[in-house]
Design a binder for these strands. Structure first.
Lengths: 140, 140
DNA sequence: TATTGTTATACTCTATAACTATA
DNA sequence: TATAGTTATAGAGTATAACAATA
C-alpha cells in the first residue's frame, strides 16, 4: 500500500508543479533551498549521488533560479536561491499546500491524526502546520 | 512530507526485496499476479504504458517466473505465475511483511489507525490484514 | 591523505509512434 | 474500425569512475 501511495504522492506532486515547468527533482531541490546549502548536503537530503546534484544545480542556474557561491572552506560550493528562485519557491509552496489532491481528501482532524504517524514512519520530526503555511515545505 | 515518505517507502521496499534479485517493478508485478492477468490490466495497475508491461513480462519470462498464455479473446495475453514464480512471490510477500523497516516503527494500534487514512488518501479500499498475512499484498 | 565538487560516460526506466493480429 | 500487445527507438533520470582543487 505504501508503494502505491508513493507513486500516487509523486504523481500528485508532479501534477501540482507541472504548471511551473519544473521536473520533480528540480522543484524539490528548490524547496529545500532555504539558506545557501552545500551541494553535498543537498545530495544527502535527496538521497542521491553528488554528481547528480551537479546536474541539478546546473539546471537551476540555467533557469536563473539559483547560484553557486563559494563557502569558507573553498572546496565547498553553496547553492543559494536567486530572487527569482525564492519567488518561484513561494509560488510552488503555496500551490502544493493548496492543491494537493491527496491531502484534500482528508479533513483537518484526519490530517492531525496522520501527521504523527508519518513522522514515526519517517523516523524524523516534521512540522505540518509550517508546511501548510509556506515555510519549511522542504520537509513535506 | 509525502514525497519524502514516498522515496523512503520505495527504498525500503527495494532493500527488502534486494536479496531476491528483482528490481522493484518486477517484484511489484509478481505480487499482483494472483490469477492470470491480462497485460492491459497490469498496465492499469502499475499506471504505466502497455509497452512497458511487455518488457516486464519479457523479463519475468526470462527468469522463468511467469508465462504468457492466450485468453478466450485471442488478442488478449494473460500473464500467469509459474510454480517457481508463485514460490518466489510467497517468499517476497513474507519478507515484506516481516522486514518492512517502516512498518516496524509502528505498533498494531498505530497501524490500525494508519490504514483507513491511507485508504482515504489513495481513494480506494485496501485490506491490510490480508496483506499482513500474505494474500493480496499486491494492494500494499 | 581525505574530501568537495565536476566531467565523461553508460545504464536503467519509461514513454511515444508505428506496426501486427484479432475482434 | 477499434482494441491488445509488440517493436524500435528516444528521452529522462541517475549512478560509476576518474579527476581537479582544496584541506
Amino acid at each position: 500500500m505504501l508503494i502505491a501511495l508513493s507513486q500516487q504522492a509523486m504523481a500528485d506532486f508532479a501534477e501540482t508543479i507541472a504548471p511551473f515547468g519544473l521536473p520533480v527533482h528540480l522543484a524539490r531541490t528548490l524547496l529545500l533551498l532555504g539558506t545557501p546549502t552545500p551541494m553535498r548536503a543537498i545530495a544527502d537530503h535527496l538521497a542521491c549521488d553528488p554528481s547528480y546534484v551537479t546536474s541539478l544545480a546546473d539546471k537551476l542556474e540555467e533557469r536563473g533560479l539559483a547560484e553557486r557561491t563559494t563557502g569558507a572552506d573553498r572546496r565547498v560550493k553553496l547553492l543559494a536561491l536567486t530572487d527569482e528562485g525564492a519567488e518561484l519557491k513561494a509560488s510552488i509552496t503555496e500551490a502544493v499546500a493548496a492543491n494537493s489532491m491527496m491531502l484534500l481528501r482528508l479533513d483537518d482532524q484526519e490530517r492531525a491524526l496522520l501527521a504523527p504517524l508519518l513522522e514515526k514512519l519517517l523516523g524524523q520530526p516534521v512540522d505540518l502546520t509550517a508546511a501548510a503555511t509556506h515555510t519549511d515545505l522542504e520537509t513535506a
